[in-house]
Amino acid sequence: MRPDLRILLPVLSLAVLLALVFWLQPRAMSYRGLNLLFNLAVPIALATVAQMIIIMVNDIDLSMGTFVSFVACVTATFVHDTPVIGYLMLAGAVLAYAAIGALIQARDLPAIVVTLGMSFVWAGLAVLVLPTPGGAAPEWLRTLMTARPPFVPMAVIAAALIALVGHLIVMRSSFGVLLRGLGGNEKSVAKAGWSPVLLRASAYGLAGLFAVLAGMTLVGLTTAADANIALRYTLLSIAGVILGGGEFTGGRVSPVGAVIGALTLTLAASFLSFLKLSSDWQIGAQGAILILVLAARLLFARRARA
């Protein structure tokens, strides 16, 4: 698929869903309404970009949800009480992510197994840091996430900013080109004299950084944490990447698409809730929306090839 087509479909699905939500619930068509619809999508968008960076280098991260939960627990405890130690811990977590990437490349391990194992490590650490739900959001984070800028709600600005920064790093910088090359053709990147271990480590480190931001913004929204707070993010982030036009192999991803994918998933849940659909049907209906979009993408791709 051509890059412009890759982004067209996610934009269209988001627009259609948004129109449906506005039609069902006109109150959503306001500054406050948009903020309520999308503010919880901000951490999901960050986690989706993190997952996208992992998928970009042909891997998949099954520990995203527990890692974001762990970061949320650290943010609500150490970053709030003793900021220096808290930020050091978060920096350590990013380094740990980079080390996992290096290990996967150096020992040629399957990422799906390593990250599944790590998910238990992060879950355990989260419970250690915060055994019972609680903690508090750092003041500046709370202020940032509840800010009311003029005209455009914070949630929309944040989503646009994440998409822009993701786009600049992944699509426009030479670093991004190298990382995509690692996913597209590892051998040629290695032949050009770049160390695949170093590259995969930096890809994981970058993903870890975005995931840390996801956990921090989540705490800014919820004001407190809980060791299970973001377990859903693993599957949401993978679905968001694919919904946003990304592919599991070959370094073919789109940061703007990933952010739009995350927004679409959040919106789909709200849409089903406004429809007053029984909860027994909601998971199935969410899946149906996903399949619908992917089917449309296949059709687009065939037409483009023809």
Binding site: Q25, L36, L40, T222, R232, S270, S273, K276, Q286
Partner: peptide, 25 residues
């Protein structure tokens, strides 16, 4: 007096559900 149950037992889902209720007035 409408009853809503989240599709999954997750705090983030329920937070979104509450925000939708705010929107529904």
């Amino acid at each position: 007096a409408d009853a809503f149950t989240t599709a999954e037992n997750q705090a983030t889902e329920q937070a979104a559900q509450i925000q939708n209720m705010i929107l529904e007035g």
